[in-house]
Design a protein around this nucleic acid. Structure first.
Lengths: 345, 345
DNA sequence: TTGTATGCGTTATCAG
DNA sequence: CTGATAACGCATACAA
């Protein structure tokens, strides 16, 4: 039974609702489906008059090719996906923006999947997202390495943000947290601070681990370090600030800018002057921390570079070329108003 | 020529790379594709031993059904999309979060498309996004009504956020900007302010228009209103603040919280005390404005409600039920530290 | 240049 | 309960 007679059978039930497919356009224009396909894809070797007829028919019927069917036939979708753990973190917006633009230049679209910090769903989400598109940019800092290693074959081609994956060769864009921390510490030391607090991020965060290590290494024989469990959000920073007063520290290194901002806010409520009585530094340089009161000294991560670089590597992968070497971005120390000379005791 | 012999022809060239499809699993398990399909979809009426064989084969081969092929066969994708003009605006994150969770309960996934404020690409993006999934949540405040009206048939089913569309019956979730503005103004008037500045959002923004109208209406015979072109971002608010000093206003109504925050920051730099010398209010109550110095008085939009409600309506639409009536959310006045009594002249 | 026939990977119908 | 087989909507060798 041909497709067409099938269609007309259905038409008996619902004449007006016949779906507008390539077949309908073909019938309307009086050509074959192949010709319609050619016209829609801009194939130049189609007679002008036929092309006209097809375009008119398509126009009248409001026809547009089905991306799903097209993807199946072509074996590619023309989209890539990025998985992020938390869209609320301004950290990602720069990456997303750059990635969107870079991909658009090659006629690729970006879709974003947010795991909402739901660690449990992340693997499923990643696989599903990946299978609906041609490539993946993966940011899953909390996912255990073994699990990621298991998933890796199913996710390829993909590029990693903010972590590396020993045992599976795929590009990754990482940030040199250690260097950033060193710069911040050097800055604080130069201001005379000798006893610092670190407001730690989530235990499971690899980047937190990197920061901690760098801090301890720098501290050896140079300054005292007090580590305070905290978190990664405004609220965490706000809540932890009260503990700061008893610690005799003169400066605070926060896990990231969000935490730093929360702490800053609480210190202000407590009547503690920043930076006169206490200095504080963040990490990331998210968009608005230059506007806090006082503006936040931080390690500025050039997020706008990451998007294009991620795309460049993913694009190479998708075309079976070998991607450029991994990027290890070094943050730039951004001195603002939240740091000042250590108060004399 | 059967599928299978076709496959083995190819295998000549690349034996090891034979794609793992339902057919391969079927062959491996020694059953038909139909059976594999049944097992993969949890169809209970399959003999235990067969089901076992299939699962083992699938496991060994690392098989997972192709979402694309599946979507084509089923006529549905199991995903919805949301189009936003700017992921950087914290305003959307609450909505996205709620929408993700609500959809997940029905086993639907959410994909996000960001138009990056690129008005030109927005229609194309909306259509493409829509055609790759089963429904759309559309937030396109700047798109001209006529254009949206043209697109509407191709976008259905969809629900609108933050605007209505006369001429096309589809659910929309809107915010009662006028009520929010009225509450803010009432608050400022009660504090003795009689000359206010409004930092206007983008001309093309319908919500800006609503705010302006409400302000003018409220102002009649009650207070003086100075309207300043501004924008929608931190930077806009920061930049416009210098103009404020000459205007003799005692209070500022900002287009949104971002602008308010930028202004707050600049006023602080200029040595103008908020709220002693100048009061300032925002709109939206995005997550961190409770942490600014001073914390921002604003009209709090309950964004966490919008996501679930959007899903409820989209879900109804996708199932040919009639959705509940439109929502017109009324913001709640959130008085914080950025407003105080008008200074006496 | 155009049409025919087939494949893309699944699901669903319908016999057996 | 299981297996052929026909869709789903499109693209593309191949033939004409």
């Amino acid at each position: 039974m041909s497709n067409r007679s099938q269609s007309s059978e259905r038409a008996h039930a619902q004449v007006s609702v016949e779906r507008v497919t390539i077949g309908l356009v073909a019938k309307t224009a009086g050509v074959s489906r192949a010709t319609v396909s050619r016209v829609m894809n801009g194939n130049p070797r189609v007679a002008q008059d036929l092309a006209q007829r097809v375009r008119r028919a398509a126009e009248e019927l409001g026809y547009a090719p089905s991306p799903v069917a097209r993807s199946l036939a072509l074996g590619r979708t023309g989209i890539i996906a990025m998985l992020v753990p938390d869209l609320g973190n301004p950290m990602f917006q720069g990456i997303l923006h750059g990635l969107t633009d870079a991909a658009a230049q090659e006629n690729y679209r970006l879709l974003v999947a947010d795991s909402n910090e739901n660690l449990h769903e992340e693997p499923v989400l990643a696989i599903e997202a990946r299978r609906r598109c041609d490539g993946l940019v993966l940011c899953a800092p909390r996912m255990p390495a073994e699990q990621l290693l298991d998933l890796a074959p199913q996710l390829a081609p993909f590029v990693l943000i903010n972590r590396e994956l020993p045992g599976f060769a795929t590009p990754s864009l990482t940030i040199d947290f250690a260097a950033g921390i060193r710069d911040l510490v050097t800055h604080l030391l130069s201001l005379g601070h000798r006893r610092l607090a670190y407001l730690a991020g989530p235990d499971t965060s690899a980047s937190n681990h990197a920061r901690v290590q760098a801090l301890h290494k720098a501290a050896e024989g140079t300054f005292e370090l007090v580590e305070l469990p905290c978190g990664a959000t405004f609220a965490d920073g706000h809540a932890v600030a009260d503990q700061l007063t008893d610690l005799q520290v003169t400066a605070v290194v926060a896990y990231n800018d969000l935490v730093a901002f929360g702490t800053l806010s609480r210190l202000h409520e407590l009547g503690i002057n920043v930076p006169a009585q206490m200095s504080i530094v963040g990490f990331d340089d998210i968009p608005f921390v230059r506007y806090t009161t006082p503006p936040l000294t931080t390690a500025s991560v050039p997020m706008d570079q990451l998007g294009p670089q991620a795309w460049e590597r993913l694009w190479a992968l998708m075309n079976d070329k070998s991607p450029e070497e991994n990027v290890h971005v070094r943050p730039r120390l951004e001195v603002r108003g939240s740091t000042g000379p250590a108060p004399s005791r």
